[in-house]
Amino acid sequence: MVSDLVLTDIRAGYRVLTLNRPDRLNSFSADLHAALMAALIAAEQDKSCRALILTGAGRGFCAGQDLSDGVFTPGETPDLSAPIEKFYNPLVRKLRGIPMPVVCAVNGVAAGAGANLALACDIVIAARSAKFIQAFAKLGLVPDTGGTWLLPRLVGGARARALAMLAEPISAERAETWGMIWKVVEDSDLMAEGHALAASLATQPTDGLALIKQALDASETNTLDAQLDLERELQGRAGRSADYAEGVTAFLERRAPRFVGRAKD
């Protein structure tokens, strides 16, 4: 069943979404795409959900596109722009735009689209044994799933070009050193760290965090003047929220804030 391809574990204030094709290193099929998008939409519609963890079942996080899933037939010329438009681009847009923080817990190899899926999340932690591979060049392809946008901004132009053209794996430790990810943890501690992060984020002013996501993404292409204008607009929205009032009140009363999180429709 499609629903079995992404496991949803509902916790207090957050959800864990687990890619569940371990026999294929959680590589993408059309059904997996559909299941992941459905899980993200369900989380977004649940106002009690204030954070997400994305991880993979088994020994890998995601090996990218499953090449046996009808994208290539010997003797035929495929149109690879079609699955990009139908699946990968909407997925990246959903992850970047979903109004809550997304923690990615990379439990093993993250290759091709799988690597860039991880990098499209807000906070990325990785097991020490994990590896990131921009595998596209080995097939004569271009990094997709946002890779050509994400990599230069995370690691700089020189490293991005080498990663894309050489298609060599890099360790989780190097990814952390280069600023590609937030943190490396021991394999046995990965999910405990992910749960701790998500549980903490689920107590924070979720709508404010969503505005931070919006502002940071816009900053990549905005001029300074445009970004200053956007900050003014977003700060105005944040200042009208119940969470801002609660944060200031709690500060003045010298107590921990009790944030509402996501505004009700």
Rank of each mutant, 00 (worst) to 15 (best):
C121V: 06
A120C: 14
A111I: 10
D207E: 01
D229K: 05
R128F: 08
A210F: 01
L117K: 09
V185Y: 06
S171L: 03
R153L: 05
W178F: 13
L190I: 09
E220M: 08
E173Q: 13
R159E: 15
N107Y: 10
T203C: 04
A137P: 02
A198K: 03
V106P: 03
W178S: 07
T203A: 09
I125T: 09
A135D: 15
L228T: 10
T203W: 00
L141P: 05
G140K: 14
R128D: 15
E168P: 04
G157L: 08
T177H: 09
A120Y: 10
V142G: 03
L154A: 12
V106D: 11
R161I: 15
A118Q: 03
L154P: 01
Q214I: 01
L230W: 01
A198W: 02
A198T: 08
A192K: 10
L224N: 08
P169F: 09
R174D: 15
G157E: 15
I125S: 03
A160F: 00
V109N: 11
A199Q: 04
V185W: 12
F132T: 08
A127D: 09
D187F: 07
K213N: 03
L211H: 00
A135W: 14
A210N: 01
V185C: 03
S171N: 11
A198L: 12
A218K: 14
G156A: 07
K138W: 08
E168C: 05
L216R: 05
D207C: 08
R161L: 15
A167H: 07
L228G: 05
N116I: 05
E173W: 08
V185S: 02
P143F: 01
Q134N: 02
V185G: 11
E176Q: 15
R128C: 03
A160H: 05
N107F: 07
K131I: 09
L117N: 10
E176T: 08
N116S: 07
M191Y: 11
A175E: 01
G146A: 03
G140V: 10
A192S: 14
V124P: 03
N116K: 09
N107W: 10
D144Q: 07
K213M: 10
R232Q: 12
A215W: 11
W149P: 01
V155F: 09
A198Y: 09
A210L: 05
T148W: 10
D225I: 06
T223Y: 13
M165P: 05
N116P: 06
A172C: 06
A210V: 00
K183G: 00
G140P: 12
H195F: 08
G156C: 07
V109M: 06
L166Q: 15
K138H: 12
Q227A: 12
S219H: 07
G157R: 14
M180Y: 01
L209D: 06
A105H: 08
L209M: 12
N107P: 04
K131P: 04
A158F: 15
L151R: 01
L216C: 04
R232I: 09
A130T: 00
L190V: 06
V155M: 13
L117E: 01
A137Y: 02
V106K: 11
V142S: 14
W178R: 00
A137D: 15
P152M: 15
V109F: 06
D229N: 14
F136K: 02
E193C: 09
P152C: 01
A130R: 13
K138P: 00
D189R: 13
E173A: 13
L209E: 04
